[in-house]
Each structure stands twice: as structure tokens, then as C-alpha cells.
């Protein structure tokens, strides 16, 4: 039972990365789109900020991996 509880906890923690990566790209595109309409530079800022968004998604993944490296895959009880 204790093991199962831990498993769900881990699934929750690492399953969260997927949504965060996707949303980072969406935020990047939206910010780029908004700035494009602000400065009249279609479509360049959208592309640039989409790349920023993708990088931000991987940054989030990287951060979780760092957390895993520090604390181990499962928490110490």
C-alpha cells in the first residue's frame, strides 16, 4: 500500500511535465502573436517566441531532472 501510494505520487509529479511543456509553447506563441500585432512584424516575433516557448518547455523538463538527481527518483522516507 505504501509503495502504491508512492507510485501515484511519482506519476503525478512526472506526468505534470508534459502539460507544462505544451503550455510553455502555447504561451510563447501567444506572446509572440501579440507582440507581432504590436510592432507589425508578422510573422517573425511569433516564430522567435515559439522557439523561446519550446526552450522554456525543455527548461522545465531539465529542472525536474535536476530535482530528481538531487532527491533520488523516489523520496526518502
Amino acid at each position: 500500500m505504501e509503495n502504491k501510494k508512492k507510485l501515484f505520487r511519482e506519476i503525478g509529479r512526472y506526468g505534470a511535465i508534459g502539460l507544462e511543456m505544451g503550455i510553455a509553447v502555447v504561451i510563447g506563441i501567444l506572446v509572440g502573436f501579440w507582440m507581432d500585432s504590436l510592432f507589425n512584424t508578422k510573422p517573425w516575433l511569433t516564430l522567435v517566441f515559439m522557439l523561446f516557448g519550446i526552450a522554456a518547455g525543455f527548461k522545465g523538463l531539465f529542472r525536474v531532472l535536476k530535482y530528481v538527481e538531487k532527491n533520488g527518483l523516489t523520496d526518502k522516507e
Binding site: 502539460l19 507544462e20 503550455i23 510553455a24 504561451i27 517566441f49 522554456a56 527548461k59 529542472r63
Partner: peptide, 18 residues
């Protein structure tokens, strides 16, 4: 800077959307 800001903004959004 923009990369970090975007990755921080993604957090509350993903929390609430999930």
C-alpha cells in the same frame, strides 16, 4: 530571460488547467 519568464508563467497555467 524570456525563456525563464515563459517557463514560470506555464506553471500556474498548467496547475489550473490540469
Amino acid at each position: 530571460f524570456p525563456i525563464e519568464v515563459i517557463s514560470h508563467l506555464a506553471r500556474p497555467l498548467s496547475l489550473s488547467l490540469r
